[in-house]
Simulated assay, not measured.
Amino acid sequence: MDTTYIAGAGMTRFGKFPNTSLAGLANEAVDAALTDAGVRAEDVGFVAFGNATSSVITGQAMIQGQLALLDGALAGARTVNVENACASSSSALHLAMMAVASGSCDVALAVGAEKMSHPDKTRAFDALGRAIDISDPLVSESPSRNSIFMDLYAQEARRYAAETGAPVEAFARTASTVHYHGSLNPNAQHRHPHSPEEILASRMIVEPLTLLMCSPIGDGAAAVIVTRDRPSTDPIAITGAALQSGRRREGGQLVTRTAKAALEQAGRKAADADVIELHDAAAPAALVILEELGAVGRGEAWKLAMEGELRHDGRLPVNTSGGLISRGHPVGATGTAQIVELVDQLRGRAGDRQVSDAQFALAQNAGGAVTLDDPYTAAVCAVTVLERV
């Protein structure tokens, strides 16, 4: 693929903001990205706007991006709305890259924005519950009152533990690591470190997942400026990118084949990544995905977690932003938020959570589920390779 570049990236703080609109969140992130890139709004030739849940939570559908940007710097810009479950904004980034690489424009913007908090707390779960095949008989058989995805992540965790011997303490240690990272990230929704013991003692959601092992509901936005020309300062190259859809009962092979496609473009191996941001909607998922990416061998991820090697100062830094669990997971913004963190790491501006001499970074974002039987298969997966050049 033709190399494209990230010139700037910015985001809001993630959290619950009852008095801030989707438009307010989106424009804050857009303005931050434009400022970071030193790009004028009129130079942006294409906008891909990622949002997943507004049509269910607020009833607003079809033109979320145009409405969100209507009174901001990008009013009137060529805008396409992207709804692709929790991978909506990583999919938007993929479209922005394609727009630039094709020559359609020189500068494109990918923005993800989501407002999931609502006085009626059931609406967020209702929205998430539509990112599956609602005709699947397993849906009606699920007894959980939580997001059905926590049932799927719990199922995955139990299988991983049975197949690799991972103890529940490894899941708690993984969660403790990202909570520690989140405590160092001023944009994180939850900024309190938690010990493995506290995590195990928190309320059980679905065995073996406790509350502090799970991602929260929240609001936020993140934006990324993509260019065809190499920026004159702090250039970050997108050297590989792949977006794939799940096949029936494919399970984790979706992550593996998506990563393979992206990494082959870059001529890289996942095991060589200096820092990885991945889709840890529940703590055990981080361990499973690390192995599916090929960053470590089968049954090795939980051992690294127990040894503290997934910390920002460890052998394989993972989710230095705090991940979905601590930074937060306003689903339409998650993919671009991962990229914001990796840009900060590669530019050496991640503060107390900075990975030493980070040069090569990997992002993995997924969403939805096309089949629910064990192992469940996500609907979409995106893997992006970034390098400091």
Results as ranks from 00 to 15, higher is better:
340 V>W: 00
327 R>T: 06
204 M>P: 06
250 E>R: 12
367 G>C: 09
21 S>C: 08
7 A>G: 06
268 R>K: 14
379 A>D: 15
225 I>D: 05
364 Q>E: 11
170 A>S: 15
201 A>E: 14
278 L>F: 07
160 Y>F: 14
241 A>T: 13
378 A>D: 13
145 R>H: 05
186 P>D: 14
239 T>K: 13
268 R>H: 09
239 T>H: 02
208 P>Q: 13
237 A>P: 01
188 A>F: 09
142 S>Y: 11
384 T>D: 08
330 P>R: 13
144 S>M: 04
22 L>D: 10
217 I>P: 01
240 G>D: 04
193 P>A: 11
165 G>C: 05
143 P>N: 14
382 A>T: 10
167 P>L: 15
125 F>M: 07
209 L>V: 08
150 M>T: 10
376 Y>N: 09
85 A>H: 06
224 V>A: 02
52 A>P: 00
168 V>D: 11
346 L>K: 03
149 F>S: 00
124 A>Q: 00
126 D>R: 13
252 G>E: 02
119 P>R: 06
353 R>E: 07
315 R>M: 10
5 Y>V: 00
383 V>R: 12
120 D>W: 09
212 L>K: 04
2 D>C: 08
181 H>Q: 05
311 R>V: 04
191 R>P: 04
38 G>C: 09
264 E>A: 15
309 E>N: 15
119 P>G: 10
23 A>G: 07
282 A>R: 03
342 L>P: 01
378 A>T: 11
104 S>L: 14
339 I>T: 11
296 V>A: 11
198 E>T: 08
44 V>M: 03
198 E>N: 04
298 R>L: 07
188 A>M: 06
382 A>G: 13
16 K>M: 12
143 P>W: 14
31 D>V: 03
15 G>N: 06
286 A>G: 04
49 F>K: 10
10 G>Y: 00
28 E>I: 04
385 V>S: 11
187 N>L: 03
347 R>V: 09
209 L>W: 10
178 V>T: 13
145 R>F: 14
43 D>A: 12
181 H>K: 07
208 P>F: 07
29 A>R: 01
